[in-house]
Design a protein around this nucleic acid. Sequence first.
DNA 1: CTTGAACCTCCAGTAGCTAGAGGATGTAAG
DNA 2: CTTACATCCTCTAGCTACTGGAGGTTCAAG
Lengths: 142, 142
Amino acid sequence: MLTIGTLAKKTGTKVQTIRYYEQVGLMPEPGRTEGGQRRYGDTELDRLAFIRHARQLGFGLDAIRELLDLSDHPDRPCEEADAIARRQLRQVEQRMARLEALKTELERMIHECSGGRTADCQVLTVLRDHSECLTEHDEIGA
Amino acid sequence: MLTIGTLAKKTGTKVQTIRYYEQVGLMPEPGRTEGGQRRYGDTELDRLAFIRHARQLGFGLDAIRELLDLSDHPDRPCEEADAIARRQLRQVEQRMARLEALKTELERMIHECSGGRTADCQVLTVLRDHSECLTEHDEIGA
DNA sequence: CTTGAACCTCCAGTAGCTAGAGGATGTAAG
DNA sequence: CTTACATCCTCTAGCTACTGGAGGTTCAAG
């Protein structure tokens, strides 16, 4: 039987985060000691490791919920899990494309800044006037 | 004199967002009509455009506050603005590197999934067992 | 039995908005 | 001048995914 602290250490999760996962229904309500402290078994350890790993891969909690659900039903076709992963991949690719555009623009701003007074600073000039931009970029809401 | 709605349209910002910027001190408190409605001039329009553009480039509100401050002092050396932009560029590069690792991992997961039952799904297997991973990836907190 | 680390619940805060309730204002048409 | 109605106002709450702290209890070792 594992305490919440041990579980936290084993999975690299904060204690509060585990309680949060319980609160939002990602982790089950575990057994308790007479005094009311949580005690976990290996099932929960595996589940938490799964969640953490999926988080590291950038999956959102909702996607993880779906993945866990699929994982609990071994006989269902795995197309859904595949679809979730593909969706995630698309998101990653989109984010990368956006970041690529931002990177270009930032590099140009910095490169052209000659290092004088702020009045002539290219960084600030570009920000003042969008038409100075060479690329389209839409980071907001990324 | 522009209403908040007009300002919103011209800059592609939601009305609430403009009020939010005022609340957090990015936008000044504008003049008001007798009835209490906000009225803006071109100064505010420029300032909001600057903010929005910086947001599109991924700058955080704190960085934007600094940039606006620098922009208000034309005689200061522009090294600070340059430094902020370089910091932002580094962040973008780091995020891209992380996303690259995630992309690789996701592609591998998807590629190896043969499309049978979820019991044999490679997507779920990888998530279950981190040691299956070829790359290090740390998206959490990105 | 005592000590101290680890546990408990509950509340608040982070970034950057966004949505909605419930009511006031501004403007153009009739 | 009145009426209609789009737009404005403030205020509160919600979103993601946690994180931190206050104030108090429990567990395990010595």
